[in-house]
């Protein structure tokens, strides 16, 4: 590879792998600075089965509790998307047996009212804000729960669009609410029951069913490879 030195980007930790000390489940380990918590687990010889999924910050499999040096505050993060720091302590969050209600969104009488039957604990929120503080995605979970209680399902769907379903907000809730499950319910109910169906889509489906594209298909499917190549190169 020919690369001109002027284009080299400094990364001190990469040039001379600097090691930091982290505590994993209470045991100290030396790991290279700057790697993710997930890679630190592999680096220290741990097999990871539960606790890893997408490895890209989307699936919420790797919810982790951590604390930085001398700070009493225990925070949460996604282990696949958070870098180690010297003096940090961390442990994977165990899975949590939150109850998911089951429902058929099409037959519910009144989804906003039915929330209180499906998840009767929701209005018992005591505003402690622990869920918001526990969320590695910085979602205003508490606010979202209240929006659900007040029936503003649209805002719930927007608030929880970043929710990776890691479940970190559930164990901390003193009212036994699992906010992400409430949010999925509210968000789906909004989509199914409140949003208008897009008019153009129905027209397109009907056009296909009515065979409106049949002529085009006959033409295209009878083309030789060379003709097809020409046709697909020509479309604008």
């Amino acid at each position: 590879m020919t690369a001109n030195n002027d284009n080299t980007l400094d990364q001190e930790h990469a040039q001379q792998p600097k090691m930091v000390t982290v505590e994993i489940d209470g045991k100290p380990h030396q790991v290279p600075a700057g790697i993710t918590l997930m890679k630190a687990l592999w680096y220290t010889g741990q097999e990871v089965t539960r606790g890893a999924g997408c490895l890209g910050g989307f699936c919420g499999a790797c919810g982790t509790y951590y604390r930085t040096k001398d700070d009493p505050k225990v925070k949460t993060c996604l282990a696949c998307s958070h870098a180690v720091e010297d003096g940090m302590s961390f442990s994977f969050a165990p899975s949590f047996p939150a109850r998911k209600a089951t429902y058929d969104l099409n037959v519910l009488e009144n989804p906003k009212q039915d929330l209180f039957e499906l998840y009767p604990e929701t209005p018992l929120c005591r505003n402690c804000n622990a869920c918001t503080e526990a969320c590695p995605q910085n979602i205003d979970v508490r606010e979202g729960v209240w929006k659900a209680v007040f029936g503003d399902f649209k805002t719930v769907s927007e608030t929880f669009m970043d929710c990776v379903m890691c479940g970190m907000c559930a164990p901390v809730c003193i009212a036994d609410i699992a906010p992400s499950l409430v949010a999925v319910y509210a968000s789906r109910a909004y989509g199914v029951r409140e949003m208008e169906k897009p008019p153009g889509l129905a027209d397109r489906i009907k056009a296909i069913e009515d065979g409106q594209y049949q002529e085009d298909w006959n033409r295209v499917l009878n083309m030789t490879d060379a003709e097809l190549q020409q046709a697909s190169a020509n479309i604008q």
Binding site: L105, N106, S157, M161, S187, R188, A189, Y190, G191, V192, M195, E196, K197, P198, P199, G200, L201, A202, I205
Partner: peptide, 19 residues
């Protein structure tokens, strides 16, 4: 697209309600 909308997937919409 219709099936997913019916399950509650929130695709982005235009002002006129179309996808």
């Amino acid at each position: 697209a219709k099936w997913l909308l019916e399950l509650g997937v929130l695709f982005d919409r235009d002002a006129d309600g179309n996808l």
